[in-house]
């Protein structure tokens, strides 16, 4: 039953966007001229496209994020049953965390966390 309501909320969200933008498109005024349709870059004519190579720093953080996010996914099932697992669960997860922290330490040492 919960999943049915999940679908209801999902569809309502989509309807909200379609309905809102559709209504606005119907009742809002329309006018057109070539200057208006240009990209807005503070009044200066755009040079070239924006779809180009980008700073690699952002990419590095995305990779690091991937590592830690997958880790969080693995930790959630452990966190719910940590009382039943007891000390054995804690020790085995410490190994897991240490390997991850070594990964972070490596990235830190290599300067991946510095913004150059």
């Amino acid at each position: 039953m919960d999943y049915a309501y999940f679908l209801v909320v999902l569809i309502t969200g989509i309807v909200l966007v379609i309905g809102g933008i559709g209504l606005a498109a119907l009742i809002s005024p329309k006018s057109n001229n070539p200057q208006k349709r240009e990209a807005y870059e503070s009044g200066i004519p755009t040079r070239g496209t924006s779809w180009m190579q980008f700073k690699v720093g952002y990419y590095l953080f995305a990779i690091l994020y991937l590592m830690f996010d997958v880790e969080t996914v693995f930790l959630f099932p452990w966190a719910t049953v940590v009382r039943d697992l007891g000390v054995a669960g804690l020790i085995s997860i410490i190994f897991f965390l240490v390997i991850l922290i070594l990964g972070l330490a490596y990235a830190w040492r290599k300067g991946a966390l510095e913004w150059k």
């Binding site: 990209a39 870059e41 755009t46 924006s50 779809w51 720093g57 952002y58 953080f61 995305a62 994020y65």
Partner: peptide
């Protein structure tokens, strides 16, 4: 999708920030 330098920089910063 906006094909605008400002939007592009904003989106990249936002991506790095939200993800972190």
């Amino acid at each position: 999708a906006s094909n605008n330098k400002y939007s592009m920089i904003g989106a990249m910063r936002s991506g790095a920030q939200l993800v972190s």
